[in-house]
């Protein structure tokens, strides 16, 4: 597959103005994104996602390392590289609120050097695709946040670039518009074979849209893996164990100490322990706790795990997520 975005060992530090302290935002990050791939770029606040995205867009210069967009070095051939990439960086703030929907689209298309004829055709197409026809002559100021977000994404799609970066594309949207946008993103990636990087805190969206995910924490890449592989890996170690009797207080204490992320739901009907094991063999230690006081296990089931849990586990660093 063609590499559309290549990030090679980028580093970025900032100097704090008041304390003159050097802060490392990004430390030796490398990854590639291929044609038609949807990549989720995740991480807690302050992890270095935004700095990475801005460096890919050429809005921020790395201290070292290189970024290529369709083979063009963004640092050396910035304007040529920008012909292949577009972005929604600040959602609805990327728009001119005193212009109408159509005027915004026309203005941004003109700013990319498109002719009037090209602009008219492309704007009409996007207004249709994003179902904005009824709103095309309304000022952006008067639109709902969802509509504004739709328009911001439509603006990013104007130039038919090969790579699109979307920062929090579904933030604060209602269910209907969020669904509509997810469908559009799927179409753009799969049918038009465009490369998309999504930075989001909305884990169900990442799980649904992304083929692969990169998790950044403290400026470095913690995980670079396909979403389905991550889910499988964690799924195999997540268990729901039904017990025939309650755990004693001493057993519960041992469970808390040995398996801090486990949960025990004591109940007269069916006590259950839910646990996510770091290593598969840890299950023997768990069984030792039950066996110590003769607690009988009724059943053991693998539990389904959502991407949010996977993300939390990885970021907390409380799991051995190294892929086999």
């Amino acid at each position: 597959m063609d590499k559309i975005i290549e990030v090679q060992g980028i580093n970025k530090t900032f100097l704090k103005r008041k304390t003159k302290e050097t802060v490392t935002a990004v430390k030796d990050i490398s990854f590639d994104v291929h044609r038609g791939e949807v990549l989720g770029l995740l991480g807690p606040n302050g992890a270095g996602k935004t700095s990475t995205i801005k460096m890919i867009c050429g809005l921020l210069q790395p201290n070292s390392g290189a970024i290529y967009i369709n083979g063009l070095d963004i640092r050396k051939k910035r304007l040529k590289a920008l012909r292949h990439i577009s972005a929604v960086l600040e959602g609805n703030r990327n728009l001119y609120w005193r212009l109408t929907v159509r005027e915004n689209l026309e203005y941004f298309a003109g700013n990319r050097g498109l002719s009037r004829k090209e602009i008219a055709a492309r704007v009409d197409q996007l207004i249709g695709q994003f179902r904005l026809k009824e709103k095309e002559n309304e000022l952006v100021n008067g639109l709902s946040r969802g509509m504004q977000q739709k328009l911001a994404i439509a603006v990013a799609l104007l130039a038919e670039t090969q790579a699109i970066l979307l920062d929090e594309p579904t933030l604060g949207l209602d269910v209907e518009i969020s669904y509509e946008l997810r469908e559009i993103i799927k179409t753009v990636a799969k049918e038009e074979q465009r490369t998309i990087i999504i930075s989001s805190h909305d884990m169900p969206v990442v799980q649904e849209l992304c083929d692969r995910t990169i998790i950044i924490n403290k400026g470095t890449v913690v995980v670079d893996e396909k979403v389905e592989n991550l889910l499988k890996l964690f799924e195999t170690r997540a268990y729901s164990i039904k017990l025939c009797s309650e755990l004693s207080p001493s057993q519960q204490k041992k469970l808390d100490v040995s398996f801090p992320l486990s949960t025990y739901k004591g109940s007269f009907r069916q006590p259950v322990v839910e646990v996510n094991l770091e290593r598969s063999e840890d299950i023997y230690d768990l069984f030792d706790i039950f066996k110590a006081e003769g607690t009988v296990v009724e059943s053991i089931d693998r539990t389904s795990i959502d991407f949010e849990q996977v993300f939390m586990e990885i970021v907390k660093g409380e799991n051995n997520y190294a892929m086999a």
Partner: peptide
């Protein structure tokens, strides 16, 4: 302030021309 400056910087035409 609006957040559109970075969007202008994404233009392949160059901001000085804009």
């Amino acid at each position: 302030m609006r957040g559109t400056l970075e969007q202008l910087y994404m233009s392949p035409m160059g901001v000085w021309k804009i």
